[in-house]
Design a protein around this nucleic acid. Structure first.
Lengths: 221, 221
DNA sequence: GACCGCAATTCTGTATACAGAATGAGGGGA
DNA sequence: TCCCCTCATTCTGTATACAGAATTGCGGTC
């Protein structure tokens, strides 16, 4: 693997896992020393992270980890809701029925995974498989590209949410509705059910954010 | 200005103006010599163009200018229609009324600009001002980012379209409907009128593409 | 005549040196 | 005591050298 890929992956993970909270300043030499590579691949990694919006260039102040304020999260979902709803609509029209039939069966049993003690790994893996199947079936490069662009920010946002058991059960039900609509080829239902799911997810995140009296992570600018 | 910015702007313009048609291979040394700078800023420019999707990395074959096939144009509009409709909806709710009142008056007189001989510069400038005002009023960073991501590809696609006078007059009317809806704060009309306008624009481009028996530019993969 | 292998050329990826710009601290003057 | 100017430090931007990988072309062999 190239050194620039390694640096990109390491820095990206550091940001997504909140090891570098918003506002952290990045300097080339510092990170080059830390990762034991030269400045050249670091520069490339910085460029990719800046293009993704995880880093922002403060004029005269270098690169800092971007903020993730309440309003940013709202704007994130303003875009996410419209494009993922449209993606779901297209998937309902274009999907391989067998693939989603299988996923439907798995989501029908998802409640068991959620009662599986504290190990939600299997459930999250199932959601990831659904996402991957939808990416595959969307078959629209720009739509997919826009979704991919949002994902790193969503990963950060999700860490602000408190997922309680009730919310997870509800979310699993929402997913099941979406998958059923896709299996049935009901594109309008797939789109609307996706919008419902995402609006509820947003509400859950915002409730967590607003409930938090003070965290270093939040910056309600 | 930085050398990497110069290189990026030059290469981007070369691609958008079809001086480098799809499939053209890019090598670092070659472009560094052509633009009389070293490979370092060229690498940064390549990275930005690749992130935008104007260049694609063919494994083992270097970077080439991305294709713009019929299906790519369709996929481009699949995304464009949903996000620009949503943007128009938000603008109708968030706009500064005076700004769009002014634009409404200008679009009401747009027919005169279109009869202004072959100089359509003023009309295109008016459309550009509308785009800028909408970008400003959208006030949603991710939505705006997604639109910006599409623009370079739209510039390329537009060069494939044959804009006849009738189409331009119709488009001006569609724009007027959109601006009126925004002035009135009618978000649903603004969204639907935008979708209508973009679907007609797509149809116009596809008619031009399909009408072209053979051009070196097209690659119907 | 065709296919396989080797060698040379070329390209990318990385490291590093150097120059110019900007920032921050420290000292001097008002 | 506060403000401004200057100098030093540090950072980014660029050039370039070097190494490893890959491709292409040529030659030999089957």
């Amino acid at each position: 693997m190239r050194a620039s890929d390694t640096a990109y992956a390491a820095l990206r993970d550091d940001i997504l896992q909140w090891r570098f909270p918003p506002g952290t300043a990045f300097a080339e030499v510092e990170q080059a020393n830390r990762l034991s590579i030269s400045r050249t691949p670091i520069r490339e990694a910085f460029a990719r992270l800046t293009a993704e919006g995880l880093l922002v260039a403060l004029p005269g102040r270098g690169l800092v980890v971007s903020e993730l304020s309440r309003s940013t999260i709202v704007e994130l979902f303003e875009l996410r809701i419209v494009i993922e709803s449209e993606a779901a609509r297209l998937v309902a029209l274009r999907r391989d029925r067998d693939v989603f039939e299988q996923l439907r069966a798995e989501f029908a049993d998802a409640a068991a995974l959620l009662d599986n003690g504290d190990d939600l790994g299997e459930y999250y893996a199932l959601v990831a498989r659904l996402d991957a199947a939808m990416d595959e079936a969307t078959n629209s490069r720009f739509l997919l590209g826009a979704i991919r662009q949002l994902r790193p920010h969503l990963v950060r946002a999700r860490r602000l949410a408190r997922d309680n058991h009730a919310r997870l059960v509800a979310a699993a039900g929402e997913h099941l509705t979406i998958v059923e609509a896709i299996v049935d080829g009901d594109d309008q239902l797939a789109a609307d059910a996706t919008a419902v799911h995402l609006r509820k997810s947003l509400k859950n995140i915002l409730d967590s954010v607003d409930g938090a009296t003070t965290t270093t992570a939040m910056n309600n600018s």
